[in-house]
Design a protein around this nucleic acid. Structure first.
Ligand SMILES: NC(=O)c1ccc[n+]([C@@H]2O[C@H](COP(=O)([O-])OP(=O)(O)OC[C@H]3O[C@@H](n4cnc5c(N)ncnc54)[C@H](O)[C@@H]3O)[C@@H](O)[C@H]2O)c1
Ligand SMILES: NC(=O)c1ccc[n+]([C@@H]2O[C@H](COP(=O)([O-])OP(=O)(O)OC[C@H]3O[C@@H](n4cnc5c(N)ncnc54)[C@H](O)[C@@H]3O)[C@@H](O)[C@H]2O)c1
Lengths: 224, 224
DNA sequence: GCAACTTTGTGCACACGTTCACAAGCGTCT
DNA sequence: AGACGCTTGTGAACGTGTGCACAAAGTTGC
């Protein structure tokens, strides 16, 4: 299954959930594509990787398709997650309800700062980073979330990997190396803003160019 | 300039900043690529879109290249940002120091909840969503960050656009439509976790398959 | 049972992005 | 000055992803 397709399945799943909540039983690729904000041909091709779950002339059965995608992504089981670094961002993540509802259970919170230990966040006690291996082992944790400062990110990832975690989501703005077999994804908010700024600047540049052109036209109109 | 290249420039910028802090004056594409975690050919092609800023046989001058990328992205000016939705995530974002240091200034915080109004977060008073147009106008805000619940995201984006914002970063798990000319990027943590889960499941599946194969071999060895 | 209509699943062409491989260019050393 | 070694910048091949367009397959109505 193409990586691009995998990245869109959660999108379809969310759209299907919304439709299910609205009591919709059947949906066409056109409608579902609109709900998910993609092209309908792309949607159909994506779904075709799961199998032929549609009915020609009708569309897709919402609940059935939802279940198929859920199974494909692996959300029939729930996944235990550890968050490392319980600062600003770690707190927000720990308190966020949107994970549990999608099959991810925050199972442990870990920080290196002794003053944070024992603090209760979202019903969990913050535990020390030294216990990481123990925690991962005991709770069967497969996914780690890194919300420490950038300088600690590589060390924390190394420890997570050593403890047996094979999937990591990194929020720290740092390049982290992980061994083969470990999946690392990163979320970088500053990068997102910078991409927006680049396009914003070009928009303004275009606007200025237009103004210059208009000025030239104006000058021509006046002088000519 | 290809979109994929634009998305990597911030990465290079960060790597260059780290090198500059370490006092490195010159860097080869190979070294810089390693620092940024990409292929060196890709790095060179990316940089070639900016111009021929390297010296053959030597490499790139760190400070000079840093300045060129900064200018290309549009980080020579600083950008005023408004955050809409000052809940869990909004607080974390408002308190995050990493934006200011990259040329983004959190200029205003907005929420719809009357009980939050006037609350001081990160040195700013939370203002009411009704003032949005005024705020955007007065402070020259071009970039909006949406951290409201999903159901409010479309409305908030509409209002941001109406107020004149042309770049939006959306954290709410919702499909949002914006008119042409407005850039919308989204950050979806649940999607990221789901992608990790998909690969995690396949790893386990592969492990199980291996075990089954090993079991078959074992059975053969015992029986044969 | 058949014709008309709807919608899926997919072959194909095209666009985009990545990587290889190497000529061109720069600095250094003799 | 000229040979040598190193690194950039880029043409070309390759791979991945997208979107059109349509045959295949189902449903509905008569
Ligand atoms: N706050 C945000 O909105 C935001 C936005 C974008 C990126 N980030 C990034 O996310 C990361 C966390 O941001 P934050 O604002 O929460 O920072 P923070 O300083 O508030 O929290 C970091 C936490 O990590 C802990 N920590 C440090 N070293 C550790 C280690 N080795 N092991 C375990 N815990 C350790 C610290 O004790 C602290 O509690 C940073 O890398 C930041 O750049 C944050
Ligand atoms: N907290 C997290 O770590 C996290 C992680 C991933 C995604 N998200 C998403 O980010 C968004 C915010 O999450 P949160 O945990 O901060 O939620 P929250 O409920 O804590 O905060 C939402 C805030 O938005 C405000 N709001 C609601 N409607 C508004 C409107 N129309 N205009 C202005 N403000 C309005 C609310 O008053 C509240 O203060 C949600 O969509 C959530 O799904 C959050």
């Amino acid at each position: 299954m193409p990586e691009a397709t995998v990245a869109r399945l959660p999108l379809y799943l969310r759209a299907l959930t919304t439709l299910a909540e609205r009591g919709v039983a059947t949906v066409s690729s056109e409608e579902l594509a609109a709900s998910a904000g993609v092209n309908s041909a792309k949607l159909r091709k994506d779904l075709s990787y799961l199998g032929s779950y549609g009915t020609r002339g009708v569309g897709y059965e919402v609940d059935f398709l939802r279940h198929q995608i859920t199974r494909e992504i692996g959300l029939t089981q729930d996944w235990a997650v550890v968050i490392v670094g319980i600062g600003n961002l770690g707190h927000a993540l720990a308190n966020y309800g949107g994970f549990a509802s999608r099959g991810f259970r925050i199972a442990a919170l870990v920080d290196a700062d002794p003053t944070r230990l024992g603090e209760e966040v979202a019903g969990l006690n913050v535990r020390h980073a030294d216990e990481l291996e123990q925690i991962v082992d005991d709770l069967g944790i497969a996914i780690g979330v890194v919300a420490t400062p950038a300088r600690a990110a590589q060390l924390v990832c190394d420890r997570l990997v050593a403890a047996g975690v094979t999937s990591i989501l990194n929020f720290a703005p740092a390049i982290v190396q992980v061994p083969e077999g470990v999946d690392l994804r990163k979320v970088d908010l500053s990068t997102e803003l910078q991409i927006l700024a680049y396009h914003e600047q070009r928009k303004n540049g275009a606007a200025l160019a237009l103004t210059a052109e208009q000025a030239a036209e104006l000058a021509e109109a006046v002088n000519g």
